[in-house]
Structures are given as structure tokens and as C-alpha cells.
Amino acid sequence: MQPWQADRTRAPIATKIVVAGGFGVGKTTLVSSVSEITPLQTEALMTEASEETDDLTGTPDKRTTTVAMDFGRITLDDDLVLYLFGTPGQQRFWFMWDDIVRGAIGAVVMADTRRLKDCFPALDYFESCGLPYVVAVNHFDGSELYEPEDVREALTIPAHIPVMIMDARRRISVIETLLSLVGHALDETPE
């Protein structure tokens, strides 16, 4: 238990990072590697609008769907707590991730080079809402190792956005990924 949990007279500053990517890419593994609590799961209702019907001139077909989110926590200081929210995104849908994205530092978009297409929707989404993001290629044992620049080219990621090869099972690797995102978010935030 952290000291701030028992003090109801003041709240720590809460901030969050979104971890996105396709099914099985390692979002929960990444969160578990750095979280001080066993990751918790919660369900959120989300609105989805299928890409095919997304027409700016009319009202698109919208449906709501229930998705599970895993989240973990890192106490960074006496009064500063960082939450990591793992969000699903394997479907070819535009998700309206209002709840999770609003107020976030940024997003780590996880990619698996064996199923690179699975991260396309997440990239499209964060580009469209202007949230700072980095691309973290989770390298799986036995899979072909690509250079970050190969992945950058395939994903058409601009040069100023970090693309890294990492291992979601390794705490150090995850911390480096988070540092890279927060550094990038700082670069994107006006003085």
C-alpha cells in the first residue's frame, strides 16, 4: 500500500498513458512489467463507427460495444501517480476512445511484425486525434528481427516520432519505451 492511498485530505496528481495495439501484441505484458499492482481489468462501453460508413457529410452508423481494458499503476512520487491503460484495437474500426484518451500524456502503439496490420487502426486513430504516440515493436522470440527504420517505412511514421524495437517482458525495456513517449510528448507540448 502506498502512503497516498490512506490520506483522504489530498489526492495525488493522476496522469495516464494509453497502451494500444492488436490482440495478443503484449499490451497486458507491458503493463504488468512495470505496474506496482497486479493489473486490474474493467469494462467500458465504446462507440464504434465502421470505417466504410464514416462519411463527414452524414451521420455514420454507430454502434456501442463492450471492451475490456487492463490497467496498471506506478507511483512516481509521493504525490504523483501514473496509470497505464491497455486498450484493445484489433478491429478495423474507428473507436471513440474518449474516456481513455482524454487528458492522456500519449500512447504507446504496440506492433508485432508478424501481424503488422493489427496496429494500423490505432495509428490512424491517434494521428486523427493528435495524441502524441510512439511505436513499440514488441520483439517475440523466434520472429524475424527488423530494423526500426524498416517498420517506420512500412507504417509511414514521420521521422520525428520514435519507433523502437523492445521486449514487453523486460521492465527496463518498458521503462525506456515510456521515457521515449514522455520525452516525445514534451517535444510536442508548447513552452
Binding site: 504523483l80 501514473l82 500524456i105 521503462i175 514534451l186 507540448t189
Partner: peptide, 14 residues
């Protein structure tokens, strides 16, 4: 969005 001061604090914390 989080401001620069908060991002700096998160960086040092990490």
C-alpha cells in the same frame, strides 16, 4: 493535455 511541468516530473519519476 498535461503541461510541460507535469511531463518533466513524470520523466524524472520514470
Amino acid at each position: 493535455r498535461p503541461d510541460r511541468a507535469l511531463l518533466e516530473r513524470v520523466l524524472s519519476g520514470l
